[in-house]
């Protein structure tokens, strides 16, 4: 067991529990886009950021991955956290301006507009959260899709960009997609 404070409250939890798991149990809201309790945490969307003070040093950490540790002090809603989340949401709006899921979370943070502009080729409703990749690998055990390329060219792909023969059409990927960008063609 480890003891730490979360938003001022001292808690004792099992070693290895993440901050996000504890927060959800405590009814504390932390926004997430790439997390699903049935799958491994990945840490790509960065929305779950919280402020952690460890041995006097404050830092920003992803709650979905960061394990509760003895003596740390965690705050889920500091000024610094809110500021970073808002800018991340501006980036999300620049990437996927028409995604309702994004617009809704942004609204919660008072973000209605974005100061950023991405090139046409850099915009997409796919936010590269990797939930589909993990659903396919961890739940359906098919490994039919994965990430391809680096930087702004990163995308989700089937091997050699053809319909993977391991795909059984289970639709788990479409089901977990937070922005609804994965459409299933019934004929296939």
């Amino acid at each position: 067991m480890v003891t730490f404070t979360l938003n001022g409250k001292e808690l004792e939890v099992k070693e290895g529990t993440t901050i996000l798991e504890v927060a959800r149990e405590q009814g504390i809201n932390i926004p997430t886009l790439c997390y699903h309790e049935e799958m491994s945490a990945y840490g790509a969307c960065r929305l779950c950021l919280v402020e952690v003070v460890k041995r006097g040093w404050p830092s920003i950490q992803p709650a979905c991955l960061y394990p509760a540790q003895n003596g740390i002090e965690v705050n889920t809603d500091t000024e610094r956290v809110r500021k970073s989340r808002k800018i991340l949401l501006e980036l999300y709006l620049a990437r996927s301006p028409d995604s309702q899921a994004i617009i809704d979370i942004a609204k919660e943070y008072g973000v209605r507009d974005t100061r950023f502009k991405l090139k046409e080729s850099e915009r997409s409703e796919c936010i590269l959260c990797g939930l589909c990749v993990r659903a396919c690998a961890e739940i359906s055990k098919r490994h039919a899709i994965s990430f391809a390329h680096r930087g702004s060219k990163r995308m989700i792909q089937t091997p050699f960009a053809e319909l993977a023969d391991t795909c059984v059409g289970c639709q788990a990927c479409a089901f977990v997609c937070p922005t609804g960008v994965i459409k299933i063609d019934e004929a296939d």
């Binding site: 980036l91 620049a94 950023f116 590269l128 680096r150 930087g151 060219k153 990163r154």
Partner: peptide
């Protein structure tokens, strides 16, 4: 050269 995983690094640098 960004691996493209974190939106902040990938889209942040693009912005």
């Amino acid at each position: 050269e960004s691996c493209g995983k974190c939106i902040s690094c990938r889209d942040g640098s693009a912005a």
